[in-house]
């Protein structure tokens, strides 16, 4: 009787110790769900979702405090992937979907105030005080955060033009969609 209890107790202690050790040794830092959500978000850091960056938005979604359709740069595709990940309903995007764009500085108007450089979340603008600023196009995420600080409104957001290199083969399935009857042929 005693020996049986002792064996069981010993077993319990050993297993408990193993579990305890494992929970320390293999501790998961941070919330893995946040990382997964963040990897879907486009990382433009534009704040159009109402959160100060992609990570805060990801955290808010993970906590359940935010809708998944607030990210315009991610588009409908982003909403769909978030819904897949989280098992939520796919919702229409809560804003107009915009084409991928980059900021362009009008060289004749720029006064070299450095305000846009400070506003750029990804350091994609180079320049110095009273020197012409320029946008490093491959690094620009088109977040539009440089527009408000510019005192002379010399920055515009231009959609990225499709080139022979960036052109994609189209989906060969032609979807049949209902259309309005043409007005007076």
């Amino acid at each position: 009787m005693i020996s049986a209890i002792a064996v069981m107790a010993l077993g319990a202690i050993l297993l408990g110790a193993a579990l305890g050790y494992a929970s320390i040794k293999f501790k998961v830092e941070g919330d893995p769900l946040v990382d997964k959500i963040e990897s879907i978000l486009p990382q433009t850091q534009c704040g159009q979702c109402g959160f100060p960056g992609c990570k805060p938005y990801a955290e808010a979604i993970a906590k359940g405090g935010a809708e998944i359709n607030l990210c315009p740069p991610g588009g409908a595709e982003g909403v769909r992937r978030l819904a897949d990940l989280l098992g939520r309903e796919v919702k229409a995007l809560d804003a107009k979907e915009k084409p991928k764009s980059v900021a362009v500085i009008d060289e004749n108007t720029c006064i070299g105030c450095t305000l846009c450089i400070q506003a750029c979340p990804v350091d994609a603008i180079v320049g110095a005080a009273k020197q012409l600023h320029v946008i490093i196009e491959p690094l620009c995420t088109g977040c539009e955060l440089c527009l408000p600080p510019c005192p002379v409104e010399c920055i515009s957001i231009e959609p990225i033009v499709e080139t022979v290199d960036s052109w994609k083969w189209k989906y060969p399935v032609i979807a049949i969609t209902p259309t309005d009857t043409p007005k007076a042929a």
């Binding site: 960056g53 992609c54 979340p121 350091d123 690094l139």
Partner: peptide, 12 residues
């Protein structure tokens, strides 16, 4: 591009 933007944002 997203990865680059993220690292640059975090560094900033």
């Amino acid at each position: 591009a997203a990865e680059t933007a993220k690292t640059r944002f975090e560094f900033k």
